[in-house]
Amino acid sequence: MATTATHLTLRHEAIKPKIGARILNTKEELLSGALTDAVNDLLEQSGVLVFPQLHLTDDEQVALTNLLGGNVPELRGQSVFPISLDRSINKEVVDYLKGSLFWHIDGTMNPVPIRGSLLTSKVLPTWGGNTEFANCYAAWDDLPEQKKVEVENLKVVHSLWNSQLFHSPEPTIEQLKDWQAKGEVELPLVWTHKSGRRSLVLGNTAQQVVGKSMAESARILHGLRQFATSEPYHYGHEWRVGDSVMWDNTGTLHRAMPYDPDCGRLLHRTILLGDEPFA
Rank of each mutant, 00 (worst) to 15 (best):
E170H: 09
P258D: 10
Q207Y: 11
K177G: 08
T4R: 05
V39G: 01
Q226M: 10
E170V: 14
H104V: 04
L221D: 00
M1H: 15
G203N: 02
G33W: 02
T108M: 03
E152V: 07
H193I: 03
Y235M: 03
G236T: 10
L165V: 08
S159M: 06
P232K: 07
E186W: 14
V156E: 04
S230M: 12
G77T: 15
V62T: 07
S32G: 13
W239H: 08
Y137T: 04
L202P: 06
A21F: 06
G196F: 08
I23G: 01
Q207G: 04
K18S: 05
P261I: 10
A14L: 13
E170L: 11
G77Q: 07
L273V: 15
Q175G: 09
N162W: 05
I114M: 10
P144Y: 07
H268G: 03
I15N: 00
V149Y: 14
K16H: 14
D59P: 00
L273A: 14
N110M: 14
Q78G: 11
K147Q: 15
D37S: 10
G211D: 14
V72Q: 06
S213M: 05
P188Q: 05
L187H: 04
W239D: 01
H234F: 14
I19T: 02
L42S: 15
D275S: 10
K147M: 11
L124I: 03
A5P: 12
T270D: 03
E44H: 13
G183M: 06
Q226W: 15
V94K: 12
